[in-house]
Amino acid sequence: MEDAHIVQLYLQRDESAIDATASRYGMRLRNLANSILQDIHMAEECENDTYLAAWNSIPPHEPFTYLFAFLARITRHLALDRCREQSRKKRNVLLVELTREMEQCIPGTGNVEGSVDARMLGVAISKFLREISEERRLVFLRRYWYMDSVAEIAKGFSLSGSAVKTMLFRIRQELKSYLRKEGLIP
């Protein structure tokens, strides 16, 4: 079923929208959650919570042309929240690693506390990503949006692990310069 049709079902408050969504995107959403949580049961819960959140947010949202991105955002958000909850109990290696990497994109903790709207930053990062090559963009997104491991990215892009890490390092450095140039970080 096409995205537009599924969204239409949501708008009509037709519960078959959930089944249609699960059938079309369930596995991808579950995989995304599992990438972050590393726990298939929690990933399944996240997937179900995503459907509920989608049900509650369409309308007012009408993601006719970007349904997957819309759902994936919810899944990622829910998974990160759960991941942080888990981290309080036991350190999550992936989250710690990714957080450390992202630290390199900002000047230091606390420096711009509250000064930048996350949405504005998202727009700026989108703009930055459009300026770099497709391969670098995809590698960045697979790592920091879909949270793939370096080894998975290396395999998928036929690069060495070192090359991926170097590429990511350089993108982070460039992103930092870009955000600084845009006045979003000091």
Binding site: F68, L98, V123
Partner: peptide, 13 residues
């Protein structure tokens, strides 16, 4: 910072 990536453009995602 990791969270704000949530607001990336849909087509990129």
């Amino acid at each position: 910072m990791l969270d704000c990536l949530e607001f990336l453009d849909s087509d990129l995602i």
